[in-house]
Design a binder for these strands. Structure first.
Length: 415
RNA sequence: GGAGGGGUUCCCGAGCGGUCAAAGGGAACAGACUGUAAAUCUGUCGCCACUGGCUUCGAAGGUUCGAAUCCUUCCCCCUCCA
């Protein structure tokens, strides 16, 4: 029964060693399934924004590991389910999104997802709107809805919060739709494994149950731990908002910097989850202590940036960071730039205005505070007063770094 | 549909006619210390203007010299009843 190739390096072991596994419906089943041949598996992504953010990296990496092991991935972009909104683990009613917005988001996200499926030549990317939109309500209730127990759904952990705060009927249907997705994928593509974040556990089980009831078929589900940083925050949240995978929302440089700045305690875990580095190598990096650990963080940042933005961008971000934080005057080309015109400089551009315009401060008031707190530096010059201005001589030909605090900077160049 | 409770600045949560841009905590940001880490300490944390102005407390009106605080209507949420 077992296929030698798949048997020899069971991906389940890889996932487990790297910390991807939170819950599995049936460990032995998943293991033997993955050992006996190609498995078609799926993960869903809801296009609620024009880009995925680093929070989606865990499922994407898991998909990539399976693809590398020779299994067949299906990425479901939830154009249909997003019209409903998943209430799992949420405390508030999700805002209903415009269909056009969802479709626009979907087309932006698709290439981001595909990047992780490259190892499988026959990877499938589908939008569940394709089968959800044509659904006939009465037929759906009769054929699918009958298999769901409201009592059991209400008892689910995922709805606890919402039972106190309020759960609308539309959201209550989300689980049925996700279960139906699994059924469709099983019927069409023989998909027998669904993976997803642990908050999806209930929805995923609904799918395996549905397939068992309708077809007496034993399909599986596996969840990933929800990643929090050591300080308890959701991974990928910063002052500027989420850390996005799209380069035009989070520059490769800032993306790189996010990972250089992670908490010491997160380094090993992130290396295992978010890079493909072999475990012995990770063990070595993770064992570094004190300031040495920064080297591990640089490796982490470089690896992830390479996966998301490509090797060239990762190299550029790394050298830019070294230059910027190593004291190279004009910084490196890859530090995000902001151009000022000669006219603005002639007129005596206020540093406070520049900070706000370059995106280093949320408002002029915020910029003013930064200056007052002594956090602003233009080149080597510490800005001492909120009324300081930038003149032509302050901006070198190769650009001058404007620092807002220790970690945020822009390269100011003349237009 | 009925009765009661509630919607406050990013989050939680005080305030219940002036002293409120609004306590406290969290998050975040800056400075010090460090290792572009953590912990700790200090400061900041609506917007604009060099101690003044403007816009905020679900929405719209109203009472008042003056409202987040009182009244009216509306929207939304929760609990119990139907």
């Amino acid at each position: 029964m077992a296929d030698a190739h798949f048997e020899a390096n069971n991906v389940l072991d890889i996932l487990r060693e790297r910390g991807f596994v939170q819950q599995v419906t049936n460990d032995d089943r998943v293991r033997s399934q993955l050992a006996s041949g190609r498995v078609t598996y799926y993960v869903g992504f809801d296009p609620t924004a024009p880009s995925l953010h680093v929070g989606s990296m865990v499922p994407l990496m898991a998909m990539a590991h399976l693809a590398r092991a020779g299994h067949r991935p299906i990425a479901v972009l939830g154009g249909g389910t997003t019209m409903i909104g998943d209430p799992s683990g949420r405390s508030e009613l999700r805002q209903v999104m415009a269909v056009e917005q969802i479709q626009a988001n979907r087309s932006q996200i698709e290439p981001q997802v595909r990047r992780f499926l490259a190892a499988a030549s026959d990877a499938i990317v589908v939008d569940n709107a394709e089968w959800l939109i044509p659904l006939n309500y009465l037929e759906f209730l009769r054929d699918i809805g009958r298999h769901f127990s409201v009592n059991r759904m209400l008892a689910a952990e995922a709805y606890k919060l919402r039972l106190e705060k309020g759960l609308s009927f539309i959201e209550f249907n989300y689980q049925l739709l996700q279960a139906y997705d699994f059924l469709v994928l099983w019927r069409r593509h023989g998909c027998t494994l669904q993976m997803g974040g642990d908050d999806q556990w209930g929805n995923m089980l609904a799918g395996t149950d549905l397939i068992r009831r309708l077809h007496q078929e034993d399909v599986q589900a596996l969840t990933f731990p929800l990643i929090q940083t050591a300080s308890g925050a959701k991974m990928g949240k910063t002052a500027a908002g989420a850390v996005w995978l799209a380069a035009d929302r989070t520059s490769p440089f800032d993306f790189f910097q996010y990972f250089v700045n992670v908490d010491d305690r997160d380094v090993g875990r992130f290396l295992r989850l978010l890079t493909f580095l072999p475990l012995p190598e990770i063990a070595r990096l993770e064992a570094l202590v004190g300031a040495e650990l920064r080297e591990a963080k640089r490796v982490l940042a470089h690896e992830i940036t390479a996966i998301v933005h490509g090797l060239a961008a990762a190299d550029a971000a790394r050298s830019a960071a070294l230059a910027a934080f190593g004291g190279v005057a004009g910084g490196d080309r890859s530090v995000p730039t902001y151009s000022v015109t000669a006219g603005e400089l002639q007129g005596g551009l206020k540093v406070v205005d520049l900070l706000a315009a370059a995106g280093l401060a949320a408002s002029k008031s915020a910029a003013r505070r930064l200056v007052e707190q002594g956090g602003v530096k233009l080149g080597d010059r510490r800005i001492a007063s909120v009324s300081d201005t930038v003149s032509v001589s302050d901006v070198a030909d190769e650009g001058t770094l404007l620092h807002a605090g220790k970690k945020h900077l822009r390269r100011i160049v003349r237009a």
